[in-house]
Design a protein around this nucleic acid. Structure first.
Length: 733
DNA sequence: AAGGCCCTTCTTTTT
DNA sequence: GAAGGGCCTT
């Protein structure tokens, strides 16, 4: 086909730009992917660049696959040698090739988040730090942030107590990764940057090879990724990036949309192209979107426009509770499909947190409406799947102590914590990994010098398992991935073990079979390729495409997608924007962008939905409508008045303000006592020791009135109205 | 060593 | 309202 057909003027400019630096700022629905794929095809077909010299990077595997198939059809399959994939996959590949220059071996494994947390907990224990006071998760966050900003363990500051703790844990954590012959997600980037920055030969090799570097979703890059791109493009200087500041929603993972500004500074000669024509949405949707995002400061204003016409109004529905919210959504979709006005896959339902999917799923099931769901109860998170992967990881890399710990007693073979502890000690004393010791026991059994350290029973059990492992290791050299897989299953009698679970055994075994099917696809390749894929493929990538059913997904996962009709649920203060973002203006802006992303997914119909009360924690909470709703001009909105009545008729209480509770639970049963809140958001109150403060939030939970108060002296406090003696100063509002 | 029970805690988003 | 940790019993 003609590469330049159906391009508007800006798209044309971008696709045909001369070599050099190009920054494409692309509004939602403006044909960003089209530009990127045509550009690659243009380089190959029109500028005669061999695919071998092209590197194209995305954030998700889904985006990479999509791009590959589109480019492939544009250049008739002529993509031999192109590097097209996610940042993390690219780095894993590079590190695998260059491992001899690094402190780990090329059979390294990638540790997932659970592994990371285990490692941090181990480190805390060894350093005698109380994990109640220093939460492993929060330490991990700090380590991750540091890595994303290219701060090594030795460089981590220790100016205060907290930093000192993180600094120590970081160092030990990093040492443990190396000991396990493992890297974490952030390491993939960090080690690659370090390697390219410090080793001229390697840098030359790759930067000469990649004559053209192209990047999707550039606004989501973090500093490490930015530096990586700079290093890779350092020789030819041909770097083509596409992004949209307004869709930057991964700040919490280190993404920094200011990389867009950095790019313009670092490459003053760069050509900046704005894609402003939207081909997706109606004018109404676009107007709402613009109103939402305009409230954010520090952004490049864009003049988004569409030729698609005004379209229908946006609907807003306020349900009594979260169950009614879900019913409303499902009912709407169901009716539209029944009346043949739409098909299932026209619909998407988006929410802030995965936990919100549960009620939606239940509502779908009640209505008999088939649905698809992205993420949520993850396939790769299932116990039997994780166990099987741990076995494979151990075979790939016997130094992986975490996988060893996970599988050594699955199925139970009488090796418990005590024995494992001794095994670790023995290994440490011998300067080996537990895996090494185990393999040695497998070879020599009673003759091994280590044998005597264990009870006779434990020694024999370990030896047995050691010989199994050693057998699989040998098998790996000559057998395909799926053959290794089968050998493990058979030797440990995994099927019998799983099917012992009478209730779920069958479906759990099916999961294992599904995993085996995937392994089979890697029979031409190495076990390491398969494991790398398992580590880097997320559940977000496993969308059942074919099924014609509505899709449930988080707002984050929705980026890059589009649907005829979009429902955004949970438009409540505290949920969207999320309560955890409340204190940070930057995070509030990001919440707003998240909402913007959701809104701009809709082609024709947008439904905004909220619930006055919802259960979180198991108890009811009352919420105000999301402040983001205030941004949308009233004339774009059509309020859906009639609420769906469920349960007892008393539920049809007139709406009487967000802070008033209704006495009944979701099934209509009454609480023993009706609690009237005494306080209201906006009140000034006085506490006997903290002084004056402003009531920010009031909830009834567990039959207690709970307040969030911002005190002038000490900031936020969460307290119980019944205990804190508060004096009400005024009732403004 | 293993399994069961009760306690707490906590929850954003994910490569 | 789920999942993990600690403590109990067998």
């Amino acid at each position: 086909m003609d590469l330049l057909a159906n391009l508007n003027q800006q798209q044309f400019q971008a696709v045909t730009a001369p070599p050099g630096q190009v920054l494409v700022l692309a509004g939602p629905g403006s044909g960003k992917t089209r530009v990127l794929t045509r550009r690659i095809a243009y380089l190959i077909r029109e500028m005669g660049v061999p695919a071998y010299h092209i590197l194209a990077v995305t954030f998700t595997n889904k985006a990479a696959q999509e791009m590959e198939s589109r480019v492939s059809s544009l250049v008739e399959g002529n993509l031999e040698g192109i590097w097209l994939g996610t940042f993390h996959a690219m780095c894993a590949r590079l590190l695998h090739r260059e491992a001899q220059l690094l402190p780990f071996k090329s059979n390294f494994v990638i540790f997932d988040e659970d592994d990371q947390e285990t490692l941090v907990k181990q480190a805390l224990k060894e350093l005698n730090i109380d994990d109640k006071l220093s939460k492993p998760g929060s330490i991990l966050n700090k380590i991750s942030t540091a890595k994303n900003n290219l701060i090594l363990a030795e460089e981590y500051p220790s100016g205060n107590y907290r930093e000192e703790i993180v600094s120590r844990v970081y160092k030990l954590y990093q040492a443990k990764l190396i000991k396990n012959n493992a890297v974490d997600f952030d390491d993939l980037l960090l080690w690659t940057v370090k390697l390219l920055a410090e080793n001229k030969d390697v840098r030359d090799a790759y930067s000469h090879r990649f004559e053209h570097v192209l990047v999707d979703e550039f606004q989501d890059t973090n500093l490490a990724q930015y530096e990586l791109l700079k290093l890779l493009a350092s020789h030819h200087g041909n770097i083509f990036v596409v992004g949209d500041e307004d869709q930057s929603i991964y700040r919490w993972r280190g993404a920094d949309y200011r990389n867009v500004l950095r790019f313009e500074q670092d490459y003053p000669a760069c050509r900046t192209i704005l894609l402003e024509q939207n081909y997706r949405s109606t004018q109404t949707v676009l107007d709402a979107a613009r109103a939402v995002i305009d409230a954010n400061t520090h952004r490049t204003p864009k003049a988004l426009f569409t030729e698609r016409g005004v379209g229908e109004k946006i609907t807003l529905f306020e349900a009594n509770d979260d169950r009614a919210e879900a019913d409303y959504v499902v009912e709407n979709i169901f009716q539209a499909i029944q009346s043949r006005k739409a098909k299932g896959s026209d619909f998407a339902v988006m929410y802030r947190t995965n936990a919100q999917s549960r009620l939606l799923e239940e509502a779908c099931m009640r209505a008999g409406l088939p649905y698809r769901i992205l993420g949520a109860q993850r396939f790769y998170g299932r116990r039997e799947v994780k166990d099987m992967i741990a076995y494979l990881r151990l075979v790939q890399n016997p130094a992986d102590e975490l996988s060893l710990g996970r599988v050594i007693n699955v199925p139970t073979r009488g090796i418990g914590d005590k024995t494992m502890e001794v095994l670790r000690q023995v290994a440490r004393a011998a300067g080996k990994t537990p895996g090494d010791v185990l393999l040695e026991l497998g070879e020599l059994r009673e003759k091994s010098p280590h044998f005597a350290r264990f009870s006779n029973r434990a020694g024999l059990l370990l030896s047995d398992f050691g010989s199994l492992l050693s057998k699989w290791l040998k098998g790996k050299e000559t057998h395909s991935v799926s053959q290794v897989f089968d050998a493990i299953i058979k030797d440990i009698r995994f099927r019998e073990y799983i099917e012992d679970d009478h209730e779920f055994g069958e479906s759990r075994w099916e999961n294992v079979q599904e995993l085996r099917r995937q392994a089979f696809e890697f029979n031409e390749k190495e076990l390491s390729d398969y494991l790398q894929r398992l580590a880097l493929v997320s559940d977000q990538d496993t969308l059942p495409e074919k099924q014609d059913a509505p899709l449930l997904l988080t707002l984050h996962a929705a980026k890059g997608l589009e649907f005829d009709t979009v429902f955004i649920v949970g438009l409540d203060e505290g949920l969207l924007p999320h309560a955890r973002s409340r204190d940070e203006p930057e995070e509030m802006s990001e919440e707003r962008r998240l909402f913007y992303v959701g809104v701009t997914r809709a082609k024709n119909h947008l439904h905004l939905v909220r619930a006055e009360q919802r259960t979180s924690f198991g108890a009811f909470e009352f919420n105000r409508p999301s402040q983001f709703l205030d941004s949308i001009p009233e004339e774009l909105i059509s309020r859906q008045g009639a609420r769906i009545a469920r349960g007892s008729k008393s539920r049809l209480d007139a709406y009487s303000g967000w802070s008033l509770p209704t006495p009944s639970g979701s099934n209509g049963e009454s609480h023993a006592r009706i609690l009237e809140p005494k306080y209201k958001a906006g009140m000034r109150v006085k506490h006997e020791s903290w002084g004056e403060g402003l009531v920010v939030d009031v909830r009834i939970q567990d039959n207690e009135e709970r307040l969030d108060v911002f005190f002038d002296s000490v900031g936020f406090k969460r307290l119980l109205a019944s205990l804190a003696k508060l004096e009400i100063l005024n009732k403004s509002q």
